[in-house]
Design a protein around this nucleic acid. Structure first.
Lengths: 127, 127
DNA sequence: CTCTGTGCAAAAGATTTGCAAGGTG
DNA sequence: CACCTTGCAAATCTTTTGCACAGAG
């Protein structure tokens, strides 16, 4: 495995994902990171988001529309509001056994599954 | 609701999604549709995929990377191979009750959930 | 000193959109 | 004949990449 350096930019991107709560997009990380490191470029943010998620230091979550990042590493499910597009964590435990079950049923090597619920959040329902 | 016409292009896009099995991307639909309707444009294919899925005549499925379309309308889960990127249906029944459960637990209006398993398919494991 | 990482800008890929012309009901 | 739809091209948006230079170890 290639040696990884710990540059200011890398550190800033990593910290920024942790500070932005609602599962930020790459662009949101870029905008926020620029406050601390004004001349960081979009390319660098994208590159570091990739490096960090390849290394397992952050998670890449795929919800309809756009990729988002998450500093919470344990497997868990998400809910996305189709009105405000906010993403939140869901209080339903991760069904680890589904992966094994599907492996046995199909002969595939199943590593993980991602579940995203869709609907309207409480705040948007009231409006 | 706006009146919808049934043009040759619209019909072709709809039929093409049904004919292409493995959960085609917009571009795959475009390439195939052009065989029957040579001067159909990409824009028209995209517009019609949107119209058809808004009308519930096809489903839009979100797997990592790219949007795909599906002519099978009943809720079901998918598996994507991280090597060949093929998408297949999964023999695990849809957990309708999860939506209600999450609604009760959170106060959100939960309409649906999407689950995508990731791993390596049998064919790619052998290679 | 070596090699990874950065900034910038250009490129790539997917999807949407403005507009004038065409076709459906 | 109203107005939905199409083709085309340009525009958007997100993400990647080539290159020369900077900087970490």
């Amino acid at each position: 495995m290639k040696q990884k350096r710990n540059t200011l930019q890398r550190k800033t991107v990593f910290e920024t994902v942790g500070e932005l709560h609602g599962h930020p997009t790459a662009n949101q990380v870029y905008l926020k990171a620029r406050e601390k490191c004004p001349k960081i470029s979009r390319g660098t943010v994208y590159r570091n988001l990739n490096v960090l998620s390849d290394d397992g230091r952050i998670k890449r979550i795929k919800v309809p529309g756009i990729v988002r990042y998450d500093s919470k590493l344990e497997p868990h499910y998400h809910f996305i509001c189709t009105v405000c597009h906010n993403v939140s964590d869901v209080p339903i435990p991760y069904q680890f056994q589904l992966n094994d079950r599907l492996s046995k049923d199909t002969g595939f090597k199943v590593n993980l599954h991602r579940t995203v619920f869709e609907g309207i959040c409480e705040k948007c329902r009231k409006e």
